[in-house]
Each structure stands twice: as C-alpha cells, then as structure tokens.
C-alpha cells in the first residue's frame, strides 16, 4: 500500500511537471474558475450581510415632537420597555441626531448649518423581538401625544428583502450555471492532459497494470492542479482584499463590518475544497473513459 501510494504520488508529480504546458493550461483554467467562484461568494455574502444588518437594525422609529419633555420621554421609554414585543429602546436626542447626520453626510454640514435651528427631531429607536409585532407597538405610539409620527422600517426591510432575494436567487443560479460551464472546461482541459498520455495508459494496460495503478496518479495530478489553482487564487484574493473591502464599503454603505475580514478564511477553504474537488472529479472522469472497455 505504501509502495502504491509512493508510486502514485511520484508519477503524479512527474506527470505534472513533464507535461508542463498542459498542467499550466489546466491550472490557469482552474484559477479563472476559482476566482469567479470566490467573487460570486463574496457578492452573495455581502448581500446577506447587508440583509442581516438591516434586519437587526432598529425596526420602529418614533419621531418625537420638539415640545416633548424629558419626563414624557422617560415615561414612553418605560412603557415601551415593559411591552413584551420590545427588546430594546434607544433615545436619540436632537443633538445626537445632528451629530449622526454630520457623520453620515460630512459634505452637507453647510446645508444644515444654514438653518436657524436644528431641524432634526429627537427619536426613539425601538427593536422588536419579532418584526411582525410592529402593529401593536405602532398603534400604541401613535396614540401618544408626544409622538410626531412613526416610521416603519419593516416596510423598508421587506422591500430590501425582495430585492436581495432576487439578487441572491439570481446569484445562486448564475453560480450554478457558471460552475457547471467551468467544471466542463476544467474537466476537458484535464482530459486533454490525459489524452496526451493515452499511449502511456495503453502501455500500462498492456503490461497488466491494475486500474488503480492507472487511475490514482492521474487523480492525484488532478488534485495537484486544484491545489495549485487554489493557492494562486487565494494569493490573488489576499492581494485584492483591500480593494474588495473598499468596493464593499462603496456599494454596501450600510455594511458596518469589513466583509472580507470575516469572509476571508472561509472563502479560502471553499476555494481550496472546490479546486481539489474539481481537479479530482475531472481526472476521474477523464481516466474512466480509458479504463472501461
């Protein structure tokens, strides 16, 4: 068994380097595939993170009249906190709202400063244990005199949800289609590498090599193609991590986390697994057609 393994690995290694051009072609195709895969995963992960973030955010915002007193606010807060549907209540003062606005729109400080006084209302931001409990809470808030109006973030979330759902489904469908096409390409590239050595396989069969002795070197070689492809892809991903984070920050502004930081190791593993898997599958399928007679 040890001898068999040593033989297979040695032959795979020699096979990979002696057929350099074919190995290069297969590895390059593999890298393309894996980069595509990683890109799609990053995109879908980004969308999911956005959704999660928005969903976890404040679900009901009650804007307060400027006339509302401190006591009124405390009373409101206390009542809200006693409601079983409510998980958290946060008071945002007018001054805080002003600061938040400045932080979010740094270029527009002049606009707000040109006004005689701070136009931003104070608000209560309320988190719900279950978004569908919105109606109860909203009804209560609307009946309170200190509340100017209630904004239902839930509606926004639902709309966003629909959009993201479409994007996710589309992304997944795209991923599957691209994955299949790419699997086909990689399998064919590996097949070419195997065909290039059809005479070797023929000789092995003639001299009485068992199927395992013929198959395993090629499978290990396929795994090597996957391994190298994954390594190169991961290096590329690592190098582009900065720009990707920038991209994410640009397009998913709401996203507070550095997506690539949390997603990085997982994607690396997925890329590795997919690379080796595709390589092994490709070799297996390619050699199979030579063995079944």
């Amino acid at each position: 068994m040890v001898r068999f393994m040593a033989f297979s690995i040695r032959r795979a290694w020699h096979g990979f380097w002696k057929n350099g051009l074919m190995s290069l072609a297969a590895t390059a195709t593999m890298v393309l595939v894996l980069v595509l895969l990683a890109g799609l995963i990053i995109l879908v992960t980004g969308l999911n993170a956005t959704l999660d973030y928005v969903q976890s955010e404040v679900q009901v915002v009650a804007y307060l009249k400027d006339s509302t007193t401190q006591q009124d606010v405390i009373a409101l807060e206390t009542t809200l906190q006693r409601m079983p549907q409510v998980t958290q209540v946060k008071f945002v003062s007018k001054a805080q709202a002003y600061q938040d606005f400045l932080a979010r729109h740094p270029g527009e400080a002049d606009v707000i400063n040109s006004l005689p006084n701070n136009p931003l209302p104070a608000s209560l931001q309320i988190n719900l244990s279950d978004p569908s409990n919105y109606v109860d809470v909203a009804t209560y808030l609307n009946s309170e005199p200190g509340v100017d109006h209630v904004m239902n973030i839930q509606q926004t979330v639902e709309q966003l949800n629909t959009v993201i759902g479409v994007l996710q489904t589309g992304g997944t469908v795209l991923l599957v289609i691209v994955g299949l096409i790419v699997l086909f390409i990689v399998v064919n590239t590996i097949r070419l590498a195997v065909v290039a050595r059809a005479d070797e396989i023929e000789i092995m069969r003639l001299v009485g090599a068992s199927d395992a002795f013929i198959r395993w070197p090629f499978i290990i070689e396929g795994a090597m193609v996957g391994l190298f492809g994954a390594a190169i892809t991961n290096v590329l991903l690592l190098l582009s991590q900065g720009p990707i984070t920038g991209f994410m920050a640009e397009y998913f502004k709401v996203l507070p986390v550095e997506a690539s930081a949390t997603v990085g190791p997982t994607i690396g593993l997925i890329v590795l697994g997919a690379g080796v898997g595709i390589g092994v599958l490709g070799s297996f399928l390619s050699v199979r057609s030579y063995l079944i007679r």
Partner: peptide, 17 residues
C-alpha cells in the same frame, strides 16, 4: 519516448507494484 531503455522495461514491473 521520455524514458530510458531501462526505465521503459522497468515500467512494466513498476506499474504492477
């Protein structure tokens, strides 16, 4: 073609373990 005479002959034994 890329194996020596010795390796071509030995190949038959090598691939049968």
């Amino acid at each position: 073609p890329n194996k020596t005479v010795r390796d071509n002959v030995g190949f038959a034994l090598e691939v049968t373990g």
